[in-house]
Nucleic acid binder design. Structure first.
Lengths: 174, 174
DNA sequence: GCAAACCGGTTGCATATTGCAATCGAACGT
DNA sequence: ACGTTCGATTGCAATATGCAACCGGTTTGC
């Protein structure tokens, strides 16, 4: 336990890790967006700049939330993977998303995933975490293996909302 | 929906509210520490400075997480109260505390509350939220009214750990 | 075989945020 | 009358962020 911490409070220590405007968004994009590469993460909804992204990735790797590896198919591509430490943030993100959906001016398409995750409850969070473990840690869960995947489900719902909104904008029924 | 937001994602919007190192600690001290006054909040574990505290309180009031009122017994004391928006952060704080307890170098005395809250589960969170509503919103829950109070329970556990640690330091059994 | 696009960053610089310590005037306790 | 407490505010130095241009190497498309 090195002594650069302000206190041993779990909330405080958590904030020391992602108490800024960007770190958690990177985790979000990796978990929900399936992003693994620098250039993919650079195209976030919120427009992170490359120096901040590079800095945060370095920090997240250093504290053990991510690992970095070479992409065998591409000599200068790096692949970032979630560690168990990051994967176990899923319940936190689910609760935070549920809270934000109620109290903040969210858009429908960007909050549909939060809604489904909230409705799915802890069972769905567990399934999602197992899926992420397989993908990022190459650990195969001993539970069921036939469902179409939580992320794919969330992604489909997101795209459906986007498509519907575009259709409404094209032929508005107002 | 004003257009100063980076995106309509619930995670992003949440970070725009408390994506810094201090805002959530103020909420934490009000929820778990029962603090209501500026001077009390100034004595945080982490040592917030008065200009930052003043700035964050102003912001939290403005976005509707807190309300500010005059203390009738003390003409220049201000009383800060949690709104429902802040009270409903309890599940988020519980999950975040649970995560931090596993992955970060927490101290025993400052994480005992997180442990109890985790073990108590959603039922305990609800009881705690009802307690906070009575205290901050003067809303009396129609459910049971005889338990000794969740915060008092957490506080007692905290003090017990502190007392035990002091005793061990005084007469170490190592 | 060659140019264009893509790869993960880095650099320089302007602006914004934070941290720290001292201080404020009003009100309070004694 | 006097020191303390109240919720802040001020000035200033240090740090973090935002922005845009740029880097050398790699891969793609033709």
């Amino acid at each position: 336990m090195n002594e650069e911490h302000r206190s041993g409070c779990p909330i405080n220590l958590s904030l020391e890790v992602f108490g800024d405007k960007w770190s958690l968004l990177i985790i979000r994009d990796m978990i929900f967006g399936g992003k693994r590469h620098f250039r993919e993460l650079l195209r976030s909804q919120e427009g992170i700049s490359s120096n901040i992204l590079a800095d945060r990735l370095k920090m997240l790797v250093q504290i053990g939330m991510l690992t970095k590896a070479d992409d065998p198919s591409h000599k200068q591509k790096a692949i970032y993977s979630l560690t168990e430490m990051a994967i176990s943030l899923v319940p936190v993100l689910a609760q935070l998303g549920a809270w934000g959906r109620v109290w903040l001016p969210v858009s429908e398409e960007l909050s549909i995933r939060a809604k489904l995750l909230e409705e799915g409850g802890p069972a769905m969070w567990e399934a999602f975490m197992n899926e992420l473990r397989e993908e990022h840690l190459r650990i195969v869960a001993d539970t069921k293996r036939d469902a179409p995947g939580v992320r794919a489900h969330l992604q489909t719902a997101y795209e459906a909302v986007v498509a519907r909104k575009q259709a409404e904008a094209g032929a508005p029924t107002t």
